[in-house]
Every structure is written in C-alpha cells, then in structure tokens.
Simulated scan of single mutants.
Amino acid sequence: MRKIYLDHNASTPIAPEVATVMGDAMEGAFGNPSSGHWAGAPARQIVETARGQVAELLGCDREEVVFTSGGSEANNFAIKGLFFKGKRSQPHFITTSVEHPAIMAPLRFLERLGATVTFLPVDGTGRINPDDLRRAITSDTILISVMHANNEVGTIQPIEDCSAIAREHGIPIHTDAAQSVGKIPTRVDELGVDLLTIAGHKLYAPKGVGALYIRAGTFLEPLIHGAEHEGGRRAGTESALLCAALGQACTLARDLSPMHEVKTLRDRFLAALKERFGESVRLNGHTEHRLPNTLNVSFVGRVGAEILAAAPEIAASTGSACHSGRIELSPVLEAMGVAPEIGMGAIRLSLGRNTTGDEVDAAILRLTSAVTPTAQ
C-alpha cells in the first residue's frame, strides 16, 4: 500500500539539508552558548548564524529575532507580552474568528484577567474586511493579531491593509505566519507588521523550535523569566542544534520557486476532482488569495473522516470531527458560514515541496475509489 503524505500544513518532514546541519551541531557544539570559554564559543556562533538566517528571510535585523520553542510559544509571547507590559485597566485586543488555537486560547485566557477581545468576522472565503478592523479599534486597543494565512483553508488575509490601519492608530500588529513562511513572501517591512510568528515544523525543520520577530521599539514582558538569554527577552539556554535547524530551513525558504510547481500540482488535483465529481466537490477558501500548497475541498453529503478511513494510505486532515455520532464543523468552516452538509465532507490536502505528480495522481485515484467504492 503506497503511502502518500498530504498533510504538510500539520507538519513537514525534516529537509535533508536541515538534518545535515543538525548532525554537524551535535558533534561540535555541546557547550552552553552563554559560556565565555572555548566550549561555548562554537554553540554561540551557531545560534547567531541561525539568527542571521532567520533575519535574512524576514528582511529584519538579527537583534529583532527571538528563538522560541515553537509557534505556540511565539504567539503566546506576542499576546501576553503586550498584555503584561501594558498599563491599561481593560486592554483590548482585535483578532479574527478563524485564528489558530494558539491565538484563540491565550486571548480567552486574558479575558479572564480583564482583557476584552473583538473577533472580526470573515466572509465565505475566510477573509476579513479591513473596514471591520478599522471600526473595531478603540482607545484601549493594545494589539491587532491577524494570521497571514489560514492553516485549514489556506486563505491569505489582507495583512498589508490591516498594517496600514494599525499604523494610522499607533497600534502594534502581529501576524501568525506559521503557515505562510516558505510558501509566499514574508518580508516584515512589506507586510508592515511589528510581530511575526514562525514555527519550525511547518518549515522543514524539527518540532520544538520557532521564532518571534519583534520590531525594534516594540517592548514585551518576557513570557519565560530566568537568566538573560535572548537579550533578556526569553530565558532558557538556547539549543544550538534546534537553532541551526531553523536557520537552515529559513535559508531554504528564501527560494520560493518550488512553490510554483506545487501550485500547479494543487490545481491539477482540484481539476481532476471536479472532473470526476462535478458539483459534488466544493472548494473551501479563496480561489486566488490562497496558499499555493493548500486544497480544502468538501465532498457534499459525505463525511470527510469516513473518506479518509477508506483511503488509509493518504495522510490528510478533515474539516469536521465526530463526537458521539454527531458531526461538528471546525470553527474555521463554521465562521465562514459553510453549511453542515458541505462542511462535514471537508478534507484538507496540503502538498509539500517534495510532493510529486505521481503522488497526486495516485491520491486522485484512491480518493475516487474511496468516495465511489464501485469505481474501477
């Protein structure tokens, strides 16, 4: 049974080039990067080289990059760091209704501590209206957080427009770019953001490492207190191994040309499904403002989990969950207003840089067989 991996939005394999630099780091960088002696110097050099590689990808200064344990920590750092650094009695946050749980959960937590949160609605494609953002701003707003691209449907938000509005009001803006880095351009000055999140395992690096870009002049209360690591912004001895991995992954991500082929394969995938199933297959997400690797489709009247269960060799994700025999839509599809009979059949097929045409063709045949078991 040929295994086909189409869940790159959940986690990517480690790139060979990344594995190589990890091996090198394991051999010669065992010292503490903060130590002043000969054993710590190689580790410090690796960490700072990696910081420069991340900065080069984002188009920022290396001092604006803070290494974290992953995207969730980076998101929490951005949100809670501004909350605890601020002086307003009832700080106000603005975000969208389709954010990742790593944004939603810390904001819900801060609501219990006195914060207020506005969740901007999205249209049927998953995009917000910047005018809604403008209307939501108050004198107590301390942060706007709008994801760059959605992890489920791939819809890309109008970040540049949101950043312009934030600048007009002197409010810092954060974007969770975990899904977009390495797929579309993420230069911070072009996006206009003050804070940006990276997650290593979405970027062909291992799990357990990420970064938060913090624009110079933006001050956050540390999320993790301790010694003065990462310029006093994040306590904890840096892992030269993991920093090297993220740095190399960011160097690879600077070349976006492979995504052109990925987009071609994704579009071929959708065209083939449309040819086989016609209007029984619906695209979820924006037709144009969408990540080049992401294909979220609904098989109308079917259950996505049941389809994937009938094609176990395909690794993919569904847009609904079954609890006690009842189908529940994902919060993203629900926020987009997707009807239950359509959303329950949602499957996310996310391609990667190494996905081949043969794999896509095999997946099309296998899904066809799973949806219509009598098909030959």
Rank of each mutant, 00 (worst) to 15 (best):
Ala211Asp: 07
Val146Gln: 02
Arg276Ile: 13
Ile142Ala: 04
Arg2Gln: 11
Val47Asp: 06
Glu63Met: 07
Thr372Val: 10
Ser89Trp: 00
Asp123Gly: 13
Met147Pro: 04
Ile184Phe: 04
Leu283Met: 07
Gly40Trp: 00
Gly343Gln: 09
Arg135Pro: 01
Pro258Ser: 09
Arg366Lys: 06
Lys183Cys: 02
Thr368Ala: 04
Leu367Phe: 00
Asn150Asp: 08
Val332Gln: 13
Thr237Pro: 04
Lys202Trp: 04
Gly352Lys: 12
Thr355Glu: 11
Val262Leu: 08
Gln90Arg: 14
Ala164Glu: 12
Lys183Asn: 13
Leu203Lys: 10
His174Asp: 08
Arg108Pro: 01
Arg276Leu: 12
Ala41Gly: 10
Asp132Val: 04
Asn9Met: 14
Gly36Tyr: 08
Gly182Ile: 07
Ala39Pro: 06
Glu17Lys: 08
Arg234Asp: 07
Asn150Lys: 05
Ala55Asn: 08
Leu120Gln: 10
Glu221Thr: 14
His260Phe: 09
Gly345Cys: 03
His323Leu: 13
Asn284Ala: 06
Ala305Tyr: 02
Arg187Tyr: 00
Leu113Pro: 02
Ala43Gly: 07
Val371Lys: 14
Glu288Thr: 11
Lys3Pro: 05
Thr287Arg: 00
Arg353His: 08
Ala205Pro: 01
Lys80Trp: 01
Arg353Lys: 14
His92Gln: 02
Val281Ala: 03
Ala311Cys: 12
Ala29Gln: 06
Ile156Gly: 01
Thr218Lys: 06
His260Ala: 15
Gln53Ser: 15
Ala199Asn: 05
Phe84Trp: 12
Thr155His: 10
Glu341Thr: 10
Phe30Ala: 13
His225Gly: 01
Pro222Met: 09
Leu223Asn: 13
Asn296Ser: 13
Ala102Phe: 06
Pro42Val: 00
Gly200Ile: 05
Thr374Gln: 09
Asn9Cys: 13
Glu63Asp: 15
